[in-house]
Design a protein around this nucleic acid. Structure first.
Lengths: 270, 270
DNA sequence: TAGTGGTCTAGACCACAGC
DNA sequence: CTGTGGTCTAGACCACTAC
C-alpha cells in the first residue's frame, strides 16, 4: 500500500565523504510519483479507477498539496492519469512509457524490452559537414565532424543501420571509445557528455545499396527512418543521427494530451 | 516587448448573459507563456540566449514566482527552453511545436501550416468491431461500430487515406455530420465530444488496391502509417484511426527531454 | 560568494462536476 | 450544495553554477 514508508528512502542518511558526485537527496515529489506509479502497475488502481483526492494524498504521504500536484503532474505527462477540474483523476489504460534514456539509446531500449542489443561499427570517418549536418549540429558548413556508421542487431539479427554524426568538439572522445562498445551513449555519458533534449523526425525512405547489404534486404525497399538531434542542457547539439529500420521490426509510439503535446506532423518541402 | 499589457486581455470584462459556454478567464500563466513564446518567435530572445531570471520575470509581469514557473514549465514541455539549476534558462533552437488539436486533426494541422485542407468521404459503414478495433475502443469484439473512410487532400492533391472507427455511442452523432464537412473533429467537439489524450503508433505499411486507387500510387508501394487512439478525460476511447500517407508528403516530429518523455519505440511482435 | 533554478509549505479563492 | 482540481500568492531553504 501507499504509505509514508515508501518515502523513507535508504539514501536519506548521507554517507559523508563518499566518492563520485554523491547525488543530493531525490526530491519528495519523485518518491510520491514513484509510489503511485508502482501502485498503478501493481493493479492497486486499475485502469478506469479514480485516484484519491489531492488532499487525501497529501495527508497520507504527509506532504503539502503542492508536492502532491507535482507528483501527479509527472504521471499526467506520462499519460498514466487524466486530470479534470471537478472530478478525481482517472487511471488511464497504462501503456508503459519509456524513459528519455531508453528512447535515445538503442541499447537501453533493447534491454528494457528484454531483447539482446548488439552492434557492429562498419565505418568511422572524419569529414566536412554537409548542409544537413551543419544545420542540425549548428556548425558552419564544411566544419570537421566525425561520422560513425553501425549496424544494430536484436538477438543477433540486423534490424537497423545507424548513421551518427558528432561535432568536432566531441570527436576525440568518440574516437576513444572501443569499437566493440555496445552503447556509445553510455560511454559518452560517463565522460560527462549530457544529453537532455532531443528532436525526432520520423518518415519513410528507401534502402540504398549499402543499407541493403547490411540489413539483408533489397535495394529500393522501404525503411522506417528516424532522424534525431540531441542537445545538451545549454541547447548545443551534441549528436545527429539517421537511423533506418527494417519494416516490421519496430514502431514508434507517442502519447500526448491537451496538457502536453510534443508530437507534430511536418509538411515535407516540395 | 514583454510588459504587463499583454496580460490585460480583452476577455477580462465578461459580457454577461452571452451565448455559448462563456469560457472563464484564461489563467495568468498562460498569458505569460504566450507572451514569452511570442517574444522568442519575434526574435527578442534568440536561440542560445538567456532568459531573464524568474524573479525578474515575476516583477515584470507583476505575478508571483510560482506563476512564472508554471509558464516556463509550459515552454519547457514544448522544447523551447532548457532548465538547469544554477543558470538562467536558455532558448533552444525554436522549432514551433504544434498544439494537441493541430496534432489530432488533419484539418487544423493543414491550416496551421498554411495549406488548404480538403477531404472526401469514400465510405461509411456500420459494422462489427474486429479484434483491433475492439481492443482500441475497449468494446467487446463484435460490438457495433461506425467506420468512416476518407481521402484527405492538401491543396487538392490526395495525400492520405484515413480510416476512422467510432464506438456505437457516437455513431448517431457522427452520422449526423454532413459528408462534405472538412473537419469531423470540430463538428464532434461542437457537440460536446471531448478529446484529451491520444496514443499514436507510427510505422510503415504498403498500399492495398483501394489505397492505390485513392492516392494514385501503385499497389504494394510503401506508405507512412499512423494509428491513433483518442480518449476523453475519463480515459474512454472516442476514436480510433489508421491514416496512411503518401511518402514524402508529411513526416512526424517529436521533441522530448529528460523532463518529459512521451515518445517510445515499440518492438513489433513476430 | 552571489545569483539562479529546484523544491516545499500553507493558505486562499475559483470553476466545474455531480449530487 | 459539496467535493474536487486549477490557479495564485508569499515566503522559505537548498543545490548548483559561475565568478
Amino acid at each position: 500500500m501507499a504509505t509514508v514508508d515508501a518515502l523513507d528512502s535508504p539514501e536519506g542518511v548521507a554517507s559523508p565523504a563518499s566518492g563520485g558526485t554523491g547525488r543530493s537527496r531525490p526530491p519528495l515529489y519523485r518518491a510520491v510519483a514513484g509510489d503511485l506509479r508502482a501502485a498503478i502497475t501493481r493493479g492497486e488502481y486499475r485502469s478506469g479507477a479514480r485516484l484519491p483526492a489531492e488532499d487525501e494524498l497529501a495527508q497520507r504521504y504527509e506532504v503539502s498539496r503542492g508536492t502532491i500536484r507535482q507528483a501527479l503532474a509527472a504521471l499526467r505527462v506520462d499519460g498514466l492519469v487524466t486530470s479534470r477540474r471537478g472530478t478525481r483523476r482517472v487511471v488511464l489504460d497504462g501503456a508503459r512509457v519509456q524513459s528519455f534514456a531508453e528512447l535515445r539509446s538503442f541499447t537501453r531500449w533493447a534491454r528494457s524490452v528484454g531483447a539482446e542489443p548488439g552492434g557492429r561499427v562498419v565505418a568511422v570517418e572524419q569529414g566536412a559537414a554537409d548542409e544537413q549536418e551543419a544545420t542540425q549540429l549548428r556548425v558552419p558548413e564544411g566544419a570537421r565532424v566525425l561520422r560513425l556508421r553501425r549496424v544494430r542487431t536484436l538477438s543477433g539479427a540486423p534490424v537497423m543501420v545507424e548513421r551518427t554524426t558528432y561535432p568536432e568538439r566531441l570527436a576525440a572522445l568518440v574516437a576513444a571509445v572501443p569499437w566493440d562498445t555496445v552503447s556509445f551513449s553510455e560511454a559518452l555519458e560517463q565522460h560527462g557528455v549530457l544529453f537532455t533534449d532531443a528532436h525526432h523526425v520520423i518518415d519513410v525512405t528507401t534502402a540504398d545499396a549499402h543499407d541493403a547489404q547490411l540489413l539483408g534486404c533489397g535495394a529500393g525497399e522501404p525503411l522506417l527512418r528516424e532522424r534525431r538531434c540531441c542537445t545538451d542542457p545549454a541547447g548545443t547539439p551534441v549528436e545527429w543521427s539517421e537511423d533506418r529500420y527494417l519494416p516490421g521490426t519496430v514502431a514508434f509510439t507517442v502519447r500526448n494530451s491537451t496538457a502536453t503535446s510534443a508530437l507534430g506532423r511536418r509538411l515535407r518541402p516540395g
